[in-house]
Design a protein around this nucleic acid. Structure first.
Lengths: 96, 96
DNA sequence: TTTTGACTTGTCAAATATTGTCCAATGTAA
DNA sequence: TTACATTGGACAATATTTGACAAGTCAAAA
C-alpha cells in the first residue's frame, strides 16, 4: 500500500474534503490532490500532520512514506533487492 | 562497506592517484577527494565510470552506491527496518 | 629547511530538483 | 445551467546538489 492510497482511504472514510486537509496543511488543493495521487511526495512534517488529522498512527504513515522513498531510490535498478538486503544488514548491525 | 571506502581501496591497490581518476571523471581533485571520503555522493554515471577505470564489477559498485542511498533515506528513522522490509516485499511481489 | 606533490577544507556559484501557486479544465450532483 | 470538488499543466520560489576555486595540511624529497 502506497502512502498516497492510504491517505485517500482515510480521508474518504471520514468524509473529509481535500480542501479541508489542504487548509490544515497550509497548501492549496491542487498540491494536496497531487500528494494524494502520489504525483508529488509529502514532506515528513506533512505526513505527521496528516496522521494527526486523520487519526492514524504516525509510525504507520511514516513507514509507508519511507517505503515509497526506498522504492524510488532502487526503482528500475537491477541490484534493488541486493541493496535493500545490504541496507537491512547494516541497520541491524549498527542498532546495538 | 561504503562505496567511498571501496573506491579508495581499489584506487590505492592499483597505485593510482586521485588526480588521475579525477581527470578521467572530468571533475577536479577536491571533488574526487570528497567522493572518496563519502562527503559527497557520486552520480550513477560516475560510479559506472569508476568501475571501468578500476576494473571492478559494475554491479558491485552500483549495489554499494544504492545501499548508501537507502541508508541515507532511513537514517535516524525509527521505522527504518520495517520500511526496508516492506520495500523488499514490494520488489519481490512485482518482480514476477 | 625549503620545496614539491598529494590530498583536504571551506566557500561560493551554477545547475538541478523539489515544492508550491495560479489558472484553467474536468467531473459531478443539484 | 450553477456550484463545488478534484485534477492538469505552466510557471515561480526554494532547497539541494554538484562543481570550481583558493587556500590549507601533511609527508617526503631535496
Amino acid at each position: 500500500m502506497k502512502l498516497a492510497n492510504r491517505i485517500k482511504e482515510l480521508r474518504e472514510s471520514q468524509g473529509l474534503l481535500q480542501r479541508q486537509l489542504s487548509a490544515q496543511l497550509e497548501i492549496d488543493t491542487p498540491m494536496f490532490s497531487k500528494i494524494e495521487r502520489g504525483e508529488r511526495r509529502a514532506k515528513r512534517e506533512q505526513v505527521l500532520k496528516i496522521a494527526e488529522i486523520l487519526n492514524e498512527n504516525k509510525d504507520v504513515l511514516l513507514s509507508l512514506w519511507l517505503t515509497d522513498q526506498l522504492l524510488d531510490v532502487v526503482n528500475g535498478e537491477e541490484q534493488a533487492l541486493q541493496a535493500l538486503k545490504m541496507a537491512e544488514k547494516d541497520i541491524k548491525a549498527n542498532k546495538k
